[in-house]
C-alpha cells in the first residue's frame, strides 16, 4: 500500500513537473494541478496510511487515523481551487490581450525579428 501511494505521488510529481516546463499556459496549468494533487496526497500521507479508521469518533473504537493532516489538506484543496482559478484567469487575460499563450516573454531579438517579418 505504501509503495502504491508513494509511487503515485512520485508519478504525479514527475508528470506535473514535465508539464510545468512546457511553453504554453494550458499545459502549465494542468501541470500545476497535477503537482497540487501530489502535494496534497503527500501532506495527507504525513499522517501515515490507515485503512478503515476514519476520524469520526465512535463508542468503543480506539484506533483512528490522524485527523490533523486531513484538516490541513481539506483547506488546501479548496484554496488550490482559488489559486487555479486566478492563474487560469491571468493566463486567459494574457491570451486575450496579446493573442499569444506562451509562458515566456519573447526575448528582444525575437520581438524585432517578428516585427521585421510581414
Amino acid at each position: 500500500m505504501e509503495l502504491l501511494v508513494a509511487s503515485a505521488i512520485g508519478i504525479m510529481t514527475a508528470g506535473g513537473l514535465y508539464l510545468v516546463l512546457r511553453l504554453r499556459t494550458f499545459p502549465v496549468i494542468l501541470g500545476m494541478s497535477l503537482l497540487t494533487y501530489a502535494v496534497n496526497v503527500f501532506l495527507f500521507a504525513s499522517g501515515r496510511l490507515t485503512i478503515g479508521a476514519p476520524p469520526i469518533l465512535r463508542d468503543g473504537v480506539e484506533i483512528y487515523t490522524d485527523p490533523l493532516p486531513q484538516a490541513l489538506v481539506l483547506t488546501a484543496i479548496v484554496i488550490s481551487f482559488g489559486m487555479t482559478a486566478v492563474v487560469v484567469m491571468i493566463s486567459l487575460g494574457a491570451f486575450l490581450g496579446s493573442d499569444d499563450d506562451h509562458v515566456d516573454d519573447l526575448l528582444e531579438e525575437e520581438v524585432t525579428s517578428a516585427e521585421g517579418t510581414p
Binding site: A6, S7, G10, T13, A14, R22, G47, R48, L68
Partner: peptide, 30 residues
C-alpha cells in the same frame, strides 16, 4: 525536461516512501 521531471518524481517517491514506513519522531498533536 523529462530528465528533470523523472528526477523530481523519483525524489518525491523516495521521500514519501521512506516517510510512510517510519513513525513520527515525537507524538503528533493529533
Amino acid at each position: 525536461d523529462a530528465g528533470v521531471a523523472v528526477a523530481g518524481g523519483l525524489a518525491t517517491f523516495a521521500l514519501a516512501y521512506h516517510y510512510l514506513l517510519r513513525d513520527a519522531v515525537s507524538t503528533p498533536i493529533s
